[in-house]
Design a protein around this nucleic acid. Structure first.
Lengths: 222, 222
DNA sequence: TTTCATCTACGTATTTATACGTAGATGTCT
DNA sequence: AGACATCTACGTATAAATACGTAGATGAAA
């Protein structure tokens, strides 16, 4: 008999975890090793306790530490663990980010259960796996404009590239402050705020302040 | 043997549906009648096709028509169907709203599977059922505790007051369109768009377009 | 020491957004 | 018939944001 594939599931919704476990149990090559409800628990499990499994199923949205931060922790601490992201988002920016952080698969919560099983087997086998919708997004991204991902591109993601001050500004933009109000709040001139705003729009590749706000909430800068 | 309790599940995430089905199947008093992936499918099932089940498990967040709109449709068309809301939100305003719309139970996705089973049985039996966290929220609200909103009148659900056209506009604002671009898209003049924008800002009590976008995403207008 | 990123600020010009307002056309409900 | 909401559009005016720039001060890093 084949060796079992061991899986750990991290999601803040118990129901989702139970669903995944139910789905996984339909396949007798795969077994559940444990689960976590927060990013903190995940790190505790893998880092402090030194556990490893064949595949970690990781949700993006979790309290305390989200999935991206978990991946970042893994990377920084050179914890070698195959990860499949299971997320509600099909935002290409998030996909790109987690890919750079070394995750091996990405499936959306819209996927049918069998896709999860397939994803687990593929990743456990050293391959990569992406949902159809994600593949489409990736395709349009990589075919449209070149995202140059050869060699060692400095793995600075957009969000990381923001300076402290820029984060200050974007936070206040989200709170519906005008440049004038932001200037008063930060004790700088409106010109400065406008410069920051301008640079933010360029950096984050959005069209206007609404785009900044949307980016900020999507990426939990707020 | 007791009569089976028939349940219909509506959620846009297949995994969640599979999870619920798996949980429900652990109890042999309850059976699945069918499931829906959008609010439209739900209405199709109950209204057009005239089906009824003992309990409908209904997610709030769904494309095309969300759970609240489904409840509203039920109420307006006098469709008598017991509903349990299954939601990620523990926002008390949403809870109050769905209660007014006649839903009989509310459980959060954090709940363990057994709670769903209990909720289904309670509601099928004519009772109400709420998750612990929801009960707490309701308690603090109704026990006179002011909800930290500096004594505001509990503003009706602003979102209801939006006209179709206003929703069109706010959706495009979220997509970072300018008034000009929105005008082109909707085939009206920029003046009209600006009027809608102005009215939206007033109606939703926000300060600017960023506020509109934030409101839209928070309240899932998008 | 030099280089570099960052924060800061200003110049000029144009485009958008916001704040007041009015008002006709249309359809719906009573 | 009348009341009403909605969608549409315009007038005038100011405030704010965006698009191009440049550039000094500062502190950290190479």
């Amino acid at each position: 008999m084949k060796k079992k594939i061991y899986v750990h599931v991290a999601d803040d919704h118990k129901i989702v975890i139970e669903g995944i476990i139910a789905v996984i149990n339909t396949d007798n090559e795969i077994a559940i090793n444990g689960y976590s409800l927060t990013g903190e628990e995940v790190i505790d499990f893998f880092d402090k306790k030194g556990n490893r499994v064949d595949v970690l199923i990781l949700d993006i949205t979790m309290p305390i530490l989200d999935g991206i931060e978990v991946l970042r922790h893994f990377k920084e601490n050179k914890i070698n663990q195959k990860v499949i992201i299971l997320s509600s988002y099909d935002d290409i920016k998030i996909v790109e980010e987690v890919l750079k952080l070394g995750c091996k698969g990405y499936i959306t919560k819209n996927s049918a259960g069998e896709h999860i099983v397939n994803a687990i087997k593929a990743v456990a086998n050293g391959e990569q796996y992406f949902s159809n919708d994600i593949q489409k997004s990736l395709f349009t991204t990589f075919s449209g404009q070149q995202v140059s991902q050869k060699g060692d591109v400095p793995d600075k993601f957009l969000i990381d590239s923001l300076t402290e001050r820029e984060v200050d500004v974007i936070r206040l933009i989200v709170k519906e402050y005008s440049s004038q109000e932001i200037a008063d709040e930060l004790n700088v001139s409106t010109r400065t705020v406008e410069t920051h705003r301008k640079n933010l729009i360029k950096k984050l590749k959005v069209k206007n302040s609404v785009g900044l706000a949307m980016y900020a909430v999507k990426n939990k800068i707020v």
